[in-house]
């Protein structure tokens, strides 16, 4: 087996960002392949990679709620006599990384792989639910990147990425739910205290174009509590976010790239090739390379 960092990008059941995610991994230097989620759950495909990626999509058409059906199916899966979730946990404990974007993030949260306090993988303590706008929305957001345990976001301060979802509001309790508000608040505090928040939605424009987190729509596109856009587990190796790094691999993916290029050219500066989303893949590559010699 080659020592090159390896990634598995899942597909199937309505996942739909596997092609561009795969390009992101390949460009960063990974040996990457697209694998059907059924082949993973049946054991036909072994978890023989450094990164397992749950990409964006519309798993089961959002029936039962976004990613809920796949989370249920994974929960119900046993492989070689053991729950599949236990094997996924083992994979993480052995140093493997599990990364979810958008629909993949929803799946990891509903499966209880995130935030997984105290290593309690498989126990759901947070969710991603309907946007406050009650609409599927596609727009570009600015993220304030926090100092977290997640290696994929190290060294980044802010990112501009697209969001494309109808159920992206990060939530830890709700008036109609079964979680006590005090329990929910404790979850929230702990996420920040333990460095498990990757990034927050930040103010996009206005006179003070700083990176302060915001609850104001549309800069916070879904009404996520504390503007949380992504979280990780206590190891930092399981992580997910609602925005799409793989949607901004090329500089020209940005809707205002003509303006940006024009500005740079007027200043006599070079126009970059890569989009900001590549940073996540590059960071992952570096981390895997450094930690798996």
């Amino acid at each position: 087996m080659s020592t090159k960092p390896r990634a598995i990008v899942l597909t199937g059941e309505g996942l739909n960002c596997e092609a561009e995610a795969n390009v992101g991994f390949l460009r960063a230097g990974f040996e990457s392949k697209i694998v059907h989620v059924r082949d993973l759950l049946s054991g036909k495909q072994k978890l023989d990679a450094h990164v397992l990626h749950f990409p964006g999509g519309f798993l089961h058409g959002d029936d039962l709620g976004s990613a809920k059906a796949l989370a249920d199916l994974i929960q119900a899966t046993r492989l070689d006599g053991k729950p599949f979730v236990d094997q996924l946990t083992q994979f993480v404990q052995d140093g493997g990384m599990v990364y979810g974007a958008c629909n993949g993030f929803q799946c990891l949260v509903k499966l209880g792989m995130l935030p997984a306090f105290d290593g309690r993988y498989g126990e759901q303590t947070a969710t991603l639910t309907f946007n406050d706008s009650r609409k599927f929305e596609m727009r570009w957001v600015k993220l304030k990147v926090l100092q977290s345990k997640c290696p994929a976001f190290q060294g980044l301060e802010q990112l501009e990425l697209p969001v494309r979802h109808g159920e992206g509001r990060f939530s830890v309790y709700d008036a109609f739910g079964s979680v006590l508000p005090s329990v929910g608040e404790a979850t929230l505090l702990r996420l920040f205290k333990d460095g498990q928040v990757l990034a927050q939605y930040a103010q996009k424009s206005g006179p003070s174009a700083t990176s302060s987190p915001t609850q104001v729509y549309p800069d916070n596109p879904n009404g996520s509590i504390q503007a949380i856009a992504g979280i990780c587990d206590p190891t930092g190796r399981v992580f997910g976010l609602m925005p799409h790094p793989e949607g901004y691999l090329n500089f020209e993916n940005h809707p205002l790239w003509h303006r940006k290029a024009d500005e740079l050219k007027r200043k006599g500066e070079p126009v970059p090739n890569e989009g900001q989303g590549m940073a996540v893949f590059d960071n992952l590559f570096r981390y895997v390379q450094e930690n798996n010699p």
Partner: peptide, 16 residues
């Protein structure tokens, strides 16, 4: 109308 329709999926869109 367009906000509700994903125009970035597949990662190839260069002018939405």
């Amino acid at each position: 109308i367009f906000r509700q329709k994903d125009h970035n999926v597949k990662g190839g869109t260069l002018l939405p």
